[in-house]
Each structure stands twice: as structure tokens, then as C-alpha cells.
Deep mutational scan, measured.
Amino acid sequence: VPQRAWTVEQLRSEQLPKKDIIKFLQEHGSDSFLAEHKLLGNIKNVAKTANKDHLVTAYNHLFETKRFK
């Protein structure tokens, strides 16, 4: 089981690129989880459509539901 890579403050910070969060989610989330949160596909394309709040919610949801690969 992966550990949380970032704190809530870090997740919301401008310093953390959306692409980093997407990469983490794609590496650790199950396909059904990723599909549900519309996070499947090319990281660049996902970054265009997903806002930061959406990614933070998905990140927290992944750990709450433990839907890891």
C-alpha cells in the first residue's frame, strides 16, 4: 500500500504541479478508480481537463477507499 506523498497543504499549493498528482494517481489507483474520476489517459490531457480541487478530492478518495492497483 502506498503512503501519502503530500500533506493537504502541499496538495493545495501552487508549488505542486497537477501532473505530479495525476502521475501518482495513475501509478497507484485501480483502473476502475481512475475511470470513475476521469483520470485515465495521457497525463497532459488529463491535466488540461482536471482542476486541482478534483485531483485533491481523488487523491484523498484513493486513500479512503484503498482502491489501489
Rank of each mutant, 00 (worst) to 15 (best):
P17C: 11
K52L: 08
L34H: 01
E64N: 08
K48Q: 14
I22G: 00
L40S: 10
Q26A: 04
V56S: 05
E64S: 07
S30C: 11
Q15H: 09
P17F: 07
A58N: 02
K19R: 10
A35W: 14
G41K: 05
S32V: 09
P17H: 14
N51A: 09
L16F: 11
Q10P: 02
V8L: 09
Q10N: 04
T65E: 12
K66G: 12
K66M: 10
T49D: 13
D20R: 10
A50K: 08
R67L: 07
V1K: 05
L25V: 03
K23N: 09
L34Y: 00
L34T: 01
K52Y: 11
W6L: 09
D20S: 09
S32P: 11
K48M: 14
K38Y: 12
K18G: 11
R4W: 12
W6E: 09
V8E: 15
V46K: 06
F24L: 03
H54V: 09
L55W: 03
E64V: 08
L11Q: 02
V56G: 02
S13D: 10
S30W: 03
Q26R: 08
K66Y: 11
R12E: 14
E9V: 03
N42A: 11
V8Q: 14
K66D: 06
L62R: 00
G29M: 01
G29N: 00
L34K: 06
R4L: 06
F24C: 06
L16N: 03
L62F: 04
F68H: 04
F24S: 02
F24I: 02
F63I: 02
H61M: 14
K18L: 12
V46P: 03
H61Q: 10
K38R: 12
H28N: 14
K23C: 11
I21H: 01
K69Y: 07
P17D: 13
F68I: 04
K38L: 12
V56A: 09
K23V: 07
D53H: 06
A47I: 12
L11D: 02
L34C: 04
S30I: 06
T57E: 13
V1E: 10
E64K: 06
N51W: 05
R4E: 13
F63K: 01
N60H: 07
F63V: 02
K18W: 04
T49C: 14
K18N: 11
Q3F: 05
D31C: 15
H54M: 13
L16E: 01
K48F: 13
A58W: 03
A35L: 12
W6D: 13
T57K: 12
D31P: 10
K23T: 09
R67K: 12
Q10I: 04
N51K: 07
K18Y: 04
K18D: 09
E36F: 10
N51Y: 07
A50D: 03
V1N: 08
Q26L: 07
K19L: 09
K18A: 15
N42G: 10
L62C: 02
A47H: 08
K52R: 15
I43P: 10
Q3R: 08
E14T: 11
V56Y: 04
S13A: 04
E14P: 15
A58K: 02
S13N: 06
N51Q: 09
W6C: 15
I22P: 00
Q26C: 06
D31H: 13
A58M: 06
A35H: 13
P17R: 10
V56E: 07
D53C: 09
P17Q: 11
E9Q: 03
K44V: 15
Y59P: 00
D20C: 10
K69T: 06
D53R: 05
E9S: 03
E14A: 12
Y59L: 03
D31F: 13
V56K: 03
I43K: 06
P17G: 10
A47P: 02
N42V: 11
L11T: 01
L34G: 02
T7S: 08
N45V: 14
V46R: 06
G41A: 05
K52N: 05
T49I: 13
Q15C: 12
D31S: 11
H61Y: 08
K52T: 06
Q15Y: 09
A5P: 15
L62K: 00
E27I: 07
L34A: 02
A35S: 12
K38N: 11
I22L: 09
K18V: 13
A50G: 05
E36D: 10
G29Q: 01
L11H: 01
P2N: 04
A47W: 06
E9C: 06
Q3E: 15
E14Y: 07
L25A: 00
E36I: 10
T57N: 10
K44H: 15
E27M: 10
A5W: 15
N45M: 13
N42F: 10
H28R: 04
T65W: 10
K44D: 15
K18R: 10
H54C: 14
V56P: 01
K38D: 14
L34R: 03
H37S: 04
S32F: 08
K23M: 09
E27K: 09
H54F: 07
N51S: 12
H28C: 08
